[in-house]
């Protein structure tokens, strides 16, 4: 059983509609990865507000999947963006990346009936 998201809470949230869940997971794959790329590009460019905005959007997206670890990782990046001090951003984005990929993988397995 994956600990990247709360399965019962997620099922309740989507009214046990696995087709709809599968659609949203596909959205997370494309939009989530895109937002993560935006965040990394903003960090490289030293654009703290853009980093904060991308992480905030990603956090909102992840929140739909009852995925506390990935959501916390996104919040950490958002805070870095809003603080203006981008020094710890690289490590925080790496952590977020890892959490996001684990979540995507577990969600895909879940909707395929694998977990």
């Amino acid at each position: 059983m994956p600990d990247t998201f709360n399965r019962a809470e997620l099922l309740e949230r989507v009214d046990h509609d696995m087709d709809f869940l599968a659609e949203t997971v596909e959205m997370l794959v494309t939009d989530g990865r895109s937002l993560l790329a935006d965040a990394r590009a903003a960090a490289v460019a030293g654009d703290a507000p853009a980093l904060g905005r991308a992480a905030h959007a990603l956090k909102g997206m992840i929140s739909n999947f009852c995925a506390a670890p990935a959501q916390d990782a996104a919040l950490a990046v958002e805070k870095i963006g809003k603080s203006g001090d981008l020094a710890p951003s690289g490590a925080a984005i790496d952590t977020l990346h890892a959490n996001l990929e684990s979540l995507i993988s577990d969600l895909q397995s879940f909707v395929r009936g694998g977990a």
Partner: peptide
């Protein structure tokens, strides 16, 4: 809502009601 998962989720609930 600019974030499309939240948008889709909201729309789905509202339509079901």
């Amino acid at each position: 809502e600019d974030e499309r998962i939240t948008r889709a989720s909201l729309a789905r609930h509202l339509q079901s009601w």
